[in-house]
Simulated scan of single mutants.
Amino acid sequence: MYRNLLVAVAHFPDRGHAIEQLARTNEEFCTLCTDLAEAKAALLHWEQSSSPVKDDRILEYRSLMNELAAEVEATLDRYR
């Protein structure tokens, strides 16, 4: 679980403690952080790819990461 939180903490370094605390008690938040980590891994994969669809996938995963990061932030704000 902690590994999946690292991407969220890297995205919101000033809220690392809040991310860790909320992850201990909120399974949905943990899933959201896992989704963000998986999207980041996929983005990194496509950035290294030589596939002809590379640019499209990069755009898709950047967009997904932005959406997930917004959800992480909104969840953190709700549990302040």
Results as ranks from 00 to 15, higher is better:
Asp35Leu: 09
Asp35Tyr: 05
His11Leu: 10
Ser63Trp: 06
Leu44Gln: 12
Pro52Leu: 04
Asn26Lys: 00
Ala42Ile: 00
Val72His: 01
Lys40His: 14
Asn26Phe: 00
Tyr79Trp: 15
Arg62Gln: 15
Cys33His: 02
Arg78Phe: 11
Glu67Trp: 03
Phe12Trp: 08
Thr25Val: 15
Glu47Trp: 00
Val9Glu: 12
Ala37Ser: 15
Asp14Pro: 00
Glu60Pro: 01
Ser49Gly: 08
Ser50Ala: 10
Leu32Asp: 01
Ile58Val: 15
Ala74Gln: 14
Asp56Glu: 11
Leu22Arg: 00
Asn4His: 11
Leu36Glu: 04
Ser51Phe: 08
Ser63Asp: 14
Glu47Tyr: 00
Tyr61Phe: 15
Tyr61Ile: 03
Leu22Ile: 15
Ser50Phe: 11
Glu71Ile: 01
Thr75Trp: 03
Leu59Arg: 15
Leu36Gly: 07
Glu20Trp: 02
Asp35Gln: 13
Thr31Cys: 05
Arg3Asp: 15
Lys54Gly: 05
Ala41Met: 06
Ala42Leu: 10
Thr25Leu: 06
Arg62Gly: 05
Gly16Val: 07
Ala41Ser: 10
Tyr79Gln: 08
Arg57His: 14
Ala8Phe: 04
Leu64Gln: 08
Cys33Asn: 08
Ala69Leu: 09
Leu64Asn: 02
Asp56Ser: 08
Thr75Val: 11
Tyr2Gly: 02
Val72Ile: 12
Val53Asp: 15
Phe29Tyr: 13
Met1Asp: 14
Glu27Gln: 09
Ala18Gln: 14
Gln21Lys: 06
Ala18His: 12
Phe29His: 04
Glu38Ile: 02
Asn66Gly: 11
Gln21Tyr: 01
Asn26Tyr: 01
Asp14Met: 03
Ala42Val: 01
His11Lys: 13
Leu22Pro: 04
Leu76Ile: 02
Gln48Trp: 00
Pro52Arg: 03
Met1Asn: 13
Lys40Leu: 01
Ser50Asn: 14
Met65Ser: 08
Val7Ser: 13
Asp35Ile: 01
Glu27Cys: 01
Lys54Ile: 05
Glu20Thr: 02
Cys33Met: 07
Ala8Trp: 03
Ala18Gly: 05
Ile58Ser: 08
His11Glu: 15
Leu22Ala: 10
Ser49Phe: 05
Arg57Val: 00
Gly16Tyr: 12
Cys30Gln: 15
Val72Trp: 03
Ser51Glu: 15
Glu47Ser: 03
Leu64Arg: 08
Leu44Ile: 04
Ile19Glu: 02
Ala18Val: 05
Ser50Pro: 05
Glu73Arg: 07
Val53Tyr: 09
Asp35Thr: 06
Thr75Gln: 08
Leu43Cys: 12
Glu71Val: 02
Leu22Met: 13
Val9Arg: 04
Leu32Ala: 00
Ala8Gln: 03
Leu6Lys: 14
Leu6Gly: 04
Ala39Ile: 03
Glu67Gln: 13
Tyr61Leu: 07
Met1Gln: 14
His11Phe: 06
Arg78Val: 12
Leu68Lys: 09
Val53Ser: 11
Ala37Asn: 10
Pro13Thr: 11
Phe12Asn: 02
Ile19Thr: 01
Arg24Gly: 09
Arg57Thr: 04
Arg3His: 12
Met65Thr: 09
Ala69Gln: 09
Lys40Met: 06
Asn66Ser: 14
Ser63Glu: 14
Glu28Asp: 15
His45Lys: 13
Leu5Arg: 01
Cys33Lys: 02
His11Ala: 14
Ala37Phe: 04
Cys33Thr: 07
Asp55Arg: 05
Glu28Ile: 09
Leu22Gly: 03
Glu27Tyr: 06
